[in-house]
Each structure stands twice: as C-alpha cells, then as structure tokens.
Design a binder for these strands. Sequence first.
DNA 1: ACATGGGTGTTACTTTATAACACTCCGCCG
DNA 2: CGGCGGAGTGTTATAAAGTAACACCCATGT
Lengths: 156, 156
Amino acid sequence: MSALHDHTHCIADALTRADALCAERGARLTALRRRVLELVWSSHRPRGAYAILEDLSQQDGKAAAPLTVYRALEFLVEQGLVHRIESLNAYVGCAAPGDVHSGQFLVCEACGDAAEIDDPGVGAAIDAAAAERGFRVQRPTVEVRGLCKSCQENPR
Amino acid sequence: MSALHDHTHCIADALTRADALCAERGARLTALRRRVLELVWSSHRPRGAYAILEDLSQQDGKAAAPLTVYRALEFLVEQGLVHRIESLNAYVGCAAPGDVHSGQFLVCEACGDAAEIDDPGVGAAIDAAAAERGFRVQRPTVEVRGLCKSCQENPR
DNA sequence: ACATGGGTGTTACTTTATAACACTCCGCCG
DNA sequence: CGGCGGAGTGTTATAAAGTAACACCCATGT
C-alpha cells in the first residue's frame, strides 16, 4: 500500500496464483469469476459487493445483477482466494491463498486498509480458548479495528 | 444455557446492572432503551434489530420504526451493555458489562448460541500481534464459528 | 444426439441500515 | 415565570446488502 507498491503487478500475481490453485484443484475459475477476483484486487482495500458490481457494469458495459457478483464472490471465498470482512460487509483479496488462512485482519479506521495477518499466536490462543470450553472451531474470524502505523504517524 | 437456567432472573439481573452502571456514569437509560435491552436479553441468543423491532411493535402495541431500535441499540452498545455480532448482524446482551469487554464470541452454527468469552490469552495474542506491526488497537472483534459442546454431543 | 449438471441471466423481493427533519420534554439561565 | 437549548423520540422516505425462484446455455460424457 505504499506509493511504491507495484499494484498492477500484484494483481497479475494474484490472478496467476488463482489460476494455478484452481487448476490444481479442478475448480473452475471462469472468465466471470476471474474478472470479479481482479476487481476485488483492484484496490488494496476491502470492497463492497455493490462497488464491484458497479465496476462490472461500467467497465464491461453490461448491467450485471447483484447475484452475479455474489455468486462469484461465494466461489472465491470458498476457494480461499478472497476473504469477507464481516464488520465491513466487504471483500478483500487473500494475501496467501493456498496456505492455511485463518482470516485475521487489522482494519484501519482512518485509511480503510485491511492488513491480513496470520499470526500463529492469535490462532493458537483461539484454539486453546475454544478447546478449554469444548468448542469445536470451524471458522475463526478476527477483525481488529484501530489505526495502522502510517495513519498514526501522519494523522490529519 | 442449560434447561435449568433461570432466564427470567438473568434478565432482571442484567437490567439491574444496567441501571446501576448508567446511574454511575450519568448515562440516561430511558424507558425505551431499557425495554430494548430487555428484548435483547429475551432469549440468550443473538437477535436481529428487526426481531427486536417486531417484539416492540407486537408486545407493546405501537408500531415502532427501525430507527427507534437502532438508536437504542447504538446507545446500549456504546455503554457496553450489548455487543453486536458482526458476522450475524445481530445483537446480544453483554455478560459482564462494566468490565473490560473485548467482545470475543464462540458462535455455534447448530444451535445459534453465542457464548461470550473474555479470554486473556486471546486478548494478549491480539495485542502482541498488533504491536509487532505498529498497529494501534481500538476495538478487537473475535467471532469464532463452530460447534458448541452440547451440539457436538447431541448432533442431529 | 441426448441427458446431465454447473454456470449464468433475469426478475422480483427480503433484510439490514441510514438520512432528513419535526416535535417533545426537561433542566437551566436569565 | 418564560423561553432557550439539547437530548431523546417520532415519522417518512430511502439506501445498502443479500436472497429466492426459475429459465437458459453450454460443455461434457455416454
């Protein structure tokens, strides 16, 4: 997310990884799904389904229906290519698809950036807390609201 | 949550604690807000704003508007009397208002119960992970989906 | 060719949440 | 006392997010 960040490259990279992963799994990353994945990545920020829908409609000419986007997002989330940020009703590209992804985010209130972390300590603490209570974890969600480093340093 | 659980008492208890806390803080727990708090507690499960709205309309005779409920909920959340479960778009009474409440929940996919935990290990792990990245935590959210103990033991 | 099933399109609708603005009630100050 | 101000509430309308139901298309395998 720095100004130096080569975002074009990073989108291309995400698409390449997605191609590889889906091929490996026999999952069908169709043109539409691939396009939606690209739009999710188009900024490094979490994006709402309707924002993506708008892009699809405007950039691709045809007016898509919400379901079109939701279905593609559902697939992408299932494949672990995209995460949903519950507290924002928004979606963001997964930084490390393929790896175990527990979905931990540091969400900056100021700049809107959502940094994905995969902190083993947090994961372990959750597992321990759940185990202690006999709870069987299926999908942990961690979304920490606060201020990212650069927004603390450059407040407005 | 057991069948033996004296729920009526537990609602009354929550209201008493709320009265005390608000008095102490000079916050105005008006009749409406108190009633909404009571309705949030009416089951031990997370409840949607519109479910509460319906109760309000049906049980109290007059048709309330969504904003009425949302405003009351906003107040209750601010006061730490109620938590919002982001992944469910629902609200649940806080088990320990007044204490530091980090908002950690074990949400059972089968029975819908959301057990509030306040695990120091999880809190500490999040603080550590954030600190490591220079992120300043304001509001951590932990919502773990899975199966609670009793639903594992009595599957259907 | 034909059946099959996954993916997509289309229309309508539900659920969740907010905006804008008026009114009321109550304490406070002059 | 009288009016001012601010928090709380009411009312209407609207936005944002998500889903249901059903039809069609097209690649694939037999």
